[in-house]
Design a protein around this nucleic acid. Structure first.
Lengths: 136, 136
DNA sequence: AAAATACTTTACGTTTACGTAAACTTTATC
DNA sequence: GATAAAGTTTACGTAAACGTAAAGTATTTT
């Protein structure tokens, strides 16, 4: 199934639950590079991986431009010149800091949500007591 | 320092490194509710907390509308009626699922960045070897 | 061969989250 | 009392990420 070689635009759109409009937009912005049979786009499994990365990036709050930068940088990195390799390492380090920040944010949010939930449950119990008193 | 009771718009903007424009915009959208002395906004420490939450929300990929919903919901929750309490609990549960998803995304991203970094380092070592061969 | 289906390009519209400028008031400083 | 500094409202502008037609092509199904 997933080791399929090529994909139509609607196959990808369906699989990842996005519109074809979005997929075409991502190509427009240089994030995907499908080949063509006539006019029709043919997406490779590499495109598929990239689409997955794009969407994960979005969920993590990355802009398309940021994601594109990473893609481009990685492509150049593969060309194997030293300067590009070092640049990539720097970029990776910065992104890691971002991820650390996000993990902190999430941890904080989780804690606050736990205390919020606890308060809700307490308040609910209070209400139950009053109900019982009313019936007594 | 931080137990100050009131804040001017520029104090808050400076502390959180945002523009006054943004702060006013957040008020416009109903996320902050400063009082006034004449025309001038006076922010409470509650507003300050909310601003912090807004910005963390943004880093986590939340829209202002989403954050506002949470604020409003929490305000109504405090009014203590049962329906609101249950609604809040539901909402908290959904948000938790979101956080789980984000944690997964981050974990994945971290793994991929590690392998990317490893590849870079390998490629660099290759280059070093070739350099040595060239000098030999 | 007619109709439905899937794809295409072009292009204007929309929402979010502000930026930026203009014109004005209030408060602090020299 | 002038002038700078910090605040205000009003309003138009903008970048990002698509939505939404319009109008056409290509293929498949009936």
């Amino acid at each position: 199934m997933s080791d399929k070689q090529t994909f139509s635009i609607s196959e990808l759109a369906k699989e990842f639950d996005v519109t074809t409009r979005s997929v075409r937009f991502y190509e427009d912005q240089g994030l995907l590079r499908p080949s063509r049979r006539g006019q029709t786009r043919i997406f490779s499994s590499k495109d598929r991986v990239r689409l997955k990365l794009i969407l994960r990036g979005k969920r993590m709050g990355f802009s398309l431009a940021e994601t594109k930068e990473l893609f481009d940088l990685w492509d150049e990195t593969l060309s194997g010149n030293e300067k590009q390799l070092l640049l990539m390492l720097e970029t990776l380090a910065r992104k890691r800091d971002q991820l650390e920040q996000q993990k902190n944010d999430i941890a904080q949010a989780e804690m606050e949500m736990e205390t919020a939930e606890a308060r809700c449950r307490e308040a609910l119990e209070e209400l139950q007591k009053k109900k019982q008193q009313a019936t007594a």
